[in-house]
Design a protein around this nucleic acid. Structure first.
Ligand SMILES: [Mn+2]
Ligand SMILES: [Mn+2]
Ligand SMILES: [Mn+2]
Ligand SMILES: [Mn+2]
Lengths: 218, 218
DNA sequence: TTATTATTTTTGGTTGACCAAAAAATTAAT
DNA sequence: ATTAATTTTTTGGTCAACCAAAAATAATAA
């Protein structure tokens, strides 16, 4: 198995298991990796052989300790590159993900070290996602989804869980960028859409969009 | 054929044909690409199908116009990355080649544009090699090899044709870096080694090393 | 519980990129 | 001009990563 393929599988398993060692099933994996489930069955068998995952037939797959370490390293590389592209080269937060998908596979520890150093060892990427340190440790914070906020409270936008250009451009348009302070005005009983104040302007957020915005209580 | 494989073949054909459209033979290609000649035969047939090279059986291969364009683009990417790694991230000129071998395959025109911009659109990489512009045009200069210099003349070091760490470290030790001024003292009749003055110190350069140093007459 | 649906696995392919060994063609030496 | 050496090509493989279709298994609904 090629290292780039392995890395993409491990990273995807990591994301689908939400950082824990939750079981991931073939269908989800197949979807994310753009292959058919039959291919996933083959692949996870091989990853099991390599002791990077534990694959239990007809049940699912989870990362081993060493698989998890590798996954965290790839996530680190991805997020360091995203931060670098945004902060040093002036790319928009809607452009960096795609490029980082390729750059994350460059295997050179010194390179990531230098990038991180130049950036002042950042803990979060342009989407507010935490950057694991060299040992794979992730700084945790007590954040919630915008869909879980309480009325008339104040929050700070901390991140997004959707990286698509369309969504990020939409947020930018309403100045819903990371670090922005918002106040929840009302939550519509009819459809659960959230009316909030940002930069003195009123914005209505659909429940679907609210699921993708991460905030912290002020 | 995968794009990374294609790119490595085109780049290697370009280098072996010395920038012109000289014919390259299978054995040389096989050596540079670390494959056996049988593999090269297969590959160049496919590249011929793709109209990137003209392959004539039992004779050799040369780049077509579109193959040449692609090759120049890869060379541009490689050298921009080398310059970036050296100038912005502080890598040594002996370290950058290896990393650039991977980075050159990242396909994103805007990325190279941004890097070039940040560097002030450099025309030469850390080894003194010219960087083709977006159109593939190379700035030419009238440089010669150190092995061709005349006695008692003054020269400036403009580049190297060997990128190995051992060679570059050796040059650094004697301060034979790009931009350095040198004066040719004598050329030993016995073995053709060159005795030159650099930073007021006398250095003896073997004919083999002299073949790999590019200079310009002052 | 049985039938239906969804998911997973098996089986039998393909394609790209490689190799080893043998055959053919070219080039160099005698 | 022959012979010998080198280079190239052909032939018959492997291996990784994929797919399509069929079979098996698991989950859900009736
Ligand atoms: Mn991303
Ligand atoms: Mn991100
Ligand atoms: Mn190089
Ligand atoms: Mn170079």
């Amino acid at each position: 198995m090629q290292s780039e393929t392995i890395e993409n599988y491990l990273k995807t398993i990591y994301h689908l298991s939400a950082g824990n060692s939750n079981i991931v099933n073939n269908k989800q994996l197949a979807e994310k990796l753009n292959v058919i489930p039959a291919t996933v069955t083959e692949s996870v068998k091989k990853l099991h052989e390599l002791k990077l995952v534990i694959y239990e037939k007809s049940y699912g797959t989870r990362l081993t300790t060493s698989g998890s370490k590798m996954a965290l390293n790839i996530v680190r590389r991805h997020r360091i590159w995203e931060t670098y592209l945004a902060n040093e080269l002036g790319f928009g937060w809607d452009e960096v993900h795609e490029i980082a998908e390729e750059l994350e596979h460059i295997k050179n520890d010194k390179l990531i070290k230098k990038l991180s150093e130049k950036l002042g060892h950042p803990n979060f990427d342009p989407h507010g996602d935490p950057i694991p340190d060299e040992k794979g440790k992730i700084q945790k914070s007590n954040v919630i989804k915008l869909s879980e906020v309480k009325i008339k409270s104040h929050y700070k936008i901390m991140g997004v869980t959707d990286h698509s250009t369309t969504f990020l451009k939409y947020l930018e348009k309403h100045q819903l960028i990371i670090g922005a302070s918002i106040t929840i005005k009302t939550i519509e009983e009819f459809d659960n859409s959230i009316i909030l104040i940002c930069q003195k302007k009123e914005v209505s957020i659909s429940p679907k969009a609210a699921e993708c915005i991460i905030v912290e209580k002020l």
